[in-house]
Amino acid sequence: MAIDQATVRKIASLARIAISDAEAAAMEGELNGILGWVEQLGEVDVTGVEPMTAVIPNQLRLRDDVIDADPLTGGNRRDDVLANAPAAMHGFFGVPKVIE
């Protein structure tokens, strides 16, 4: 199923990527090329086949309920968390004002 420029703009909006009309036009062709090609998967008979969930047989491990057991995945590191923030303000991340 071919997509049009309106769909391209809708996808871009869902993905939060600003695009110009020219980009939308260019992408329309590219995306249709790729999507047309991947659609050959529809030929494959997948009756009774489960979608892949774990590529290598493995169990989901659960961790113990311990705070900061490993500093790499624990809290109490606000400076590290904020170190790269474009707008760190009074211990918060600043963003343009949001109206809820």
């Binding site: 303000m89 991340f93 600043g94 963003v95 004002k97 949001v98 809820e100």
Partner: peptide, 13 residues
């Protein structure tokens, strides 16, 4: 989100 700390910004905790 906190909206009342700054005139043009919201703060994220």
């Amino acid at each position: 989100l906190m909206h009342d700390q700054h005139p043009t910004m919201s703060y994220v905790d």
